[in-house]
Every structure is written in structure tokens, then in C-alpha cells.
Simulated assay, not measured.
Amino acid sequence: TLYLCEREGLEKVLIHFDELDQGMSRFDYSRQQMITGLILATRAINREAAKNTVKLKSVVYLRTDLWDEINFSDKNKITSTSVLDISWDEESLLKVVNSRVKSIVGSEWQYLHDGVKMRGRQQKFSYIVARSFLRPRDIISFLNILLDKAKKRIASKGGVTVFINKDIVESRREYSTYLRRELHDEISPHWAEWEDSLRIISKIGLLSFARVTFEQRYTQSISPQSDRTSEQALETLYEYSVIGAYRASGYGGKKWVYRYSEPGEAWDSSGSLFKVHLGLKEHLALKE
């Protein structure tokens, strides 16, 4: 690669490796070894490039759960020196949305809706973000569904040409199905039967549920050949933010903690109350 760059007179080259989980049904040992090999190879290339005149940089994009699962001798060293965690919040997500909207219609989000707050006096964008995993693709998926709902409303009944609360509410079910598919792609390579737990939660029927209730139904519903206990099932659901845990906030009170928004909050085996992520409420037909 360095030889070709020098021969062609390229002064700066960026090589990106993305979507490494595409089509992956199992994150088995062979796949782990392949990704480990890629990571080590890119590090070697970057080191060699640093000795040459060519400014070559290779970057591997990897989901956090996949990175956590692989193990190799230099992983800790690479984590501390070469890993950049990409995280988002509502403000940065809004910047992404405004950038995309401006490039398409020359406007920004604030001019695309009627300004009326959602139930609970929540701003529309905050309402959408609360149903995401703080990822741009989640927000964009919700907005694409929202746009389709608004177009259909305007075509059939007329009315304002901006998003209204009714459009957002009617977008939730389709978006909820999208979110379940996203989770399936992430969890199934590690736990093929994970949706059995979703069905149990759906039968409980409530957004918040007690550990004892889940354990009773899990014991009754899961096959004896299942490779996870109810405790392990809850822990895995927590790790992927399917559920949040009710725990002390550090300020004398309690709050709901989700791994996607607070990655430093590890699983607490003593937790007794859990809440399903809001984005899955419609897909699982849950009540508050």
C-alpha cells in the first residue's frame, strides 16, 4: 500500500473499515480472530506509514459490544492509546439533523414543526431522542418515518405543512419495529434466543416490571436446554439497553439507568426493578 501511494504521488490516504458486522449471524471464534487480525494489521500499517513521507491512516469502526468480546495480548495497550469512543447527546444529534435538513431544504429542524410540546411538556426533538439509543441512525430513521406520516396526513386531510404531535405519535409503532430489528442484528450473534425474553416481557405487559415477575415467567417459558439463567438473561438485556435498572442516583434519590446513556454503570445483580426502553413500547404492546 505504501509503495503504491509513493508511486502514484499520493500525499494523504485514509482507509476506513466499517460495517464489519454486516450479515453476521454469529460472533464466533473465527470471526473474532478475523477482526483481531484486521485491528493488528491496521496498527502495523499505521506504524509503518509514520516512518514514511506518505500520510496514510487506517481506521477500524467497531461496535462497542464486539470490541468488548474480543481478546488479544495488546488489547489494553490499543484501548488506552488508539481507541476513540464515538458518543452522542441531544445537542450533537440535533446538529447532525440540522446539517442534513439544511442540505436538503435549506432550513433547520425548528422551522419544520409547529412548536407545540408533546405530552408531559416535552419538546418534540427531546421526545424523539428519548426513544433512541443516542445514535444518528435512530434519529434519522424516526424522522424518515415521521416525514412519511406527515405527507400522508397532508395528502388525505390537508392541514399545516409542518410536523405536528399527531404525526410523531403515529410514527412510534413503525419506529419501534425498526428498533427491535436493530437490536436483533446486534444481540442475535451472541444470543440466538434473546427474543424469547422479549416475548416474556410482552406478556407481562408493563413498561416497568419486577425481577421476581420476570424470573417466574422465565422459568415457566424457557426450554431446559437454554444456555442462560433468568439472571443472565436480564444482564444481557441490560448490557444492550433493552432494559434499564432502577438504582441510586448518587444524590440521595433513585433514577432509571440505561447502559447506552451511562456506559460506566455496570450490571448490578441486586437490582429488583427494571424498565423497558421507550423505543420498544409499541412493538411489545406495553402499558405504562
Rank of each mutant, 00 (worst) to 15 (best):
D167V: 04
R217L: 13
V13W: 01
S80N: 14
R31W: 09
L280S: 02
S221A: 10
A245Y: 07
D138A: 01
E231A: 04
S82N: 10
A245W: 03
G37P: 01
E215T: 09
Y111N: 13
K281D: 07
L183H: 06
S202E: 06
K77S: 12
T42W: 08
E239W: 11
K281Q: 14
G279L: 00
Q225L: 13
S30L: 14
I15Q: 11
T42S: 11
I139E: 01
E90V: 05
H16Q: 14
V101L: 11
E215L: 07
V83K: 09
L56E: 00
L10W: 11
D114K: 03
K57Q: 10
L284G: 02
I154F: 10
I154H: 01
E108K: 08
K55D: 15
S269W: 06
L207T: 02
D68W: 11
Q123D: 12
K287L: 14
G250M: 04
R247Y: 15
R47W: 11
V83I: 09
Y61E: 01
L198E: 06
G205Q: 03
M34G: 11
K157W: 15
S25G: 15
A248D: 15
T219I: 14
V129H: 00
R121E: 13
R172L: 09
V54W: 02
L234H: 02
V60D: 05
M34P: 03
K254Q: 15
Y258K: 06
S197M: 08
E108P: 04
E239Y: 09
Y246C: 07
H16I: 14
L66K: 10
G37Q: 07
D196C: 09
C5W: 05
Y61R: 01
R199F: 09
V169E: 08
M118P: 05
V59R: 10
F142N: 03
G9A: 05
Y251R: 15
S188P: 03
D74C: 12
I39W: 04
L280Y: 00
A210S: 15
W109M: 00
R181N: 15
T1I: 14
M34V: 09
S221D: 11
K149Q: 04
G271C: 11
L183P: 05
I201L: 03
I200W: 01
S103A: 14
L147W: 09
E235S: 05
R137V: 06
V242W: 05
I168Y: 04
Y111R: 14
L10H: 10
G120V: 06
N165F: 04
Q216K: 15
L147F: 09
I154G: 02
L179V: 09
D89N: 08
L62H: 00
R217S: 13
A150F: 00
S208N: 13
T42E: 10
I78A: 04
K51I: 13
Y111W: 14
E19G: 10
L143K: 02
Q216P: 03
P189S: 05
Y260W: 07
F214R: 01
A41Y: 15
R217E: 13
L207H: 02
F142D: 02
T1L: 11
H16W: 13
G115E: 00
S202M: 10
V97K: 00
Y111H: 14
Q22D: 15
D114L: 04
Y258L: 06
G23V: 09
W194S: 02
F27D: 03
Y240N: 04
S82F: 05
Y178Q: 12
R47P: 06
S58D: 09
S141C: 12
P136N: 01
L2N: 00
T161D: 10
K95T: 08
F133I: 03
R135P: 00
F163N: 00
